[in-house]
Amino acid sequence: MRKFTYLVPKTLDEAISLYQSYGERAKYIAGGTDVLVKIKEGKLAPDYLISLKHIISQDRPFLNHETGELYVGAFVTHRMIETSPLVQAHYPILYDAVKNIGSVQIRNVATIGGNLVNAVPSADGAIPLITLDGKANIYGAKGQRSVDLLRFFLGPGQCDLERGEILTEVVVPRLLPRTGSAYIKHGRREAMELPMLGVGVLLSLEADMETCAKAGISLGVAAPTPIRALQAEKHLVGKTINEETLAEAGKIAGEESKVRDSIRGVAWYRREMVAVLVTRMGMKALERASRNAEVGMGNK
């Protein structure tokens, strides 16, 4: 592999000051499962790699019990999210997504922040966090700022990071009571494959356990960036959630999407599948919301 100097800062400020010193010749690296492949392929040729892996921060997702917010640090590996009992119990949409990313070997190393800043249309990690109304916390020379994760993605391979800025964490606001959520990666095989389509659905129910109080529907590989199907969400609010209303929402979501023909699938098929998968994930979210309510877990 091409020669480079590997720098291992312990704090964000140190990382940023290293980046300022080396500028264009430097590249941030966390897990490295994408950066090292790009260096090997000659697509990147940094003289300095600034590791974000040793910055002292939380190494697993955690809940702020006062605010009910979930914090997912950018340098947390996919495997840490996958094996988190907190995520499995309360954020199954996130679990559904991370467990099928790459392989165990990749998930043990690759970070969620790396998945997000790559900003590929198919980023499995992004869809659930967008569905959950996640906010991206970003740190740079000018200090900290926060953007809606949905707005963080600007185009294929492009995200809202100024030069030298670092995505530090994603914060998910408190879930409403009686919430269920689910994600599906649709493709030809489960492991080691990018999705042809990614669909995430979140439903919060009224006390009657059937009327929709809030809906979140997000689509991956359905546009140049991950998107929320806002019209489809609006269609569900106030309605009784069942297979029919979900199918209607799915059809609207398919129309809202900007699917196109690509090597992994053709547009008309993707549009049809948006409708099918929104319905399926909606039913699954409904079931999960009901189950949570039964065992009294709620979503505190």
Binding site: G32, R79, Q105
Partner: peptide, 13 residues
Amino acid sequence: GNAVNSCLYLAAE
């Protein structure tokens, strides 16, 4: 204790 791909793991780590 974790399986990793040694081709994408820096020796420094």
